[in-house]
C-alpha cells in the first residue's frame, strides 16, 4: 500500500485522457497497421492485455470481445488478451470499482509485472459514470490503483478502442523518447 501510494505521488502527470470520438470514421486496417508498428517498437512486437472487470455492467466487455472477432482481429497487430495479470503488459480496467472488487483490483495490479500500463476503459471506469456517488462504488479506477490512460465512452466502440489504443501507444512512444 505504502509503495503504491509513494508511486502514485511520485509519478508526474499520471493520467492521459483520450476521447476517441474523433476517430469514428478512420480505416481500422490503417489504424491497426500503425498500432502494429508501435507495438513492434515499444513492446517488442507483442502487447498482452489483461482485462479486469471491476464491477462493470458488461457493456465494455462486449466491445472488447468484439476486438478479437474476424472483423477487427486485433491479433494480427500483435495485440492479444491473456488469462492472467502475470502475463500482461497492460491492464484494461472496466467498471466503477464496486467496493467488493477494489481489493481484487489492487491485487491484480500488484500481480502484474513491470513494465505495465493501466488503462481505464469507459466512463464508469474514469469517473463512475452513471454510478457515480453510489455508496457501493469507489467511482473510478484511479481512486484505487494508479491509472496511466483513460479511454472515454459509454462504452467505447471497438473502433474507438483501437483508435485510442493507437493514441496511447503514440503517447507511450513519445514519453519513452523523452
Amino acid at each position: 500500500m505504502i509503495r503504491l501510494l509513494r508511486k502514485t505521488v511520485a509519478t508526474p502527470s499520471p493520467l492521459i485522457s483520450i476521447d476517441p470520438s474523433a476517430c469514428e470514421r478512420v480505416d481500422i486496417s490503417v489504424v491497426g497497421r500503425e498500432i502494429e508498428d508501435h507495438v513492434k517498437r515499444l513492446f517488442r512486437g507483442s502487447l498482452a492485455i489483461r482485462q479486469v472487470d471491476a464491477g462493470s455492467d458488461n457493456a465494455a466487455e462486449q466491445e472488447l470481445v468484439a476486438l478479437s472477432n474476424p472483423f477487427y482481429d486485433v491479433e494480427r497487430f500483435g495485440v492479444h488478451f491473456v488469462a492472467s495479470p502475470r502475463h500482461a503488459d497492460m491492464l484494461m480496467a472496466t467498471g466503477p470499482v464496486a467496493r467488493n472488487m477494489a481489493e481484487a483490483l489492487r491485487r491484480t495490479y500488484a500481480a502484474t509485472p513491470d513494465p505495465k500500463f493501466v488503462v481505464a476503459l469507459g466512463d464508469d471506469a474514469i469517473d463512475g459514470g452513471i454510478f457515480r456517488g453510489s455508496y457501493a462504488v469507489y467511482d473510478a479506477v484511479k481512486n484505487v490503483i494508479p491509472v496511466d490512460y483513460e479511454i472515454a465512452g459509454d462504452p467505447p466502440s471497438p473502433r474507438a478502442i483501437l483508435c485510442a489504443l493507437l493514441k496511447i501507444l503514440e503517447t507511450i512512444g513519445a514519453n519513452s523518447l523523452n
Partner: peptide, 13 residues
C-alpha cells in the same frame, strides 16, 4: 530483470 514477490494470484480472492 527485477524479480518481485507477491501473493499468489487467484483472481483477487
Amino acid at each position: 530483470q527485477k524479480t518481485t514477490f507477491g501473493p499468489t494470484w487467484d483472481c483477487g480472492a
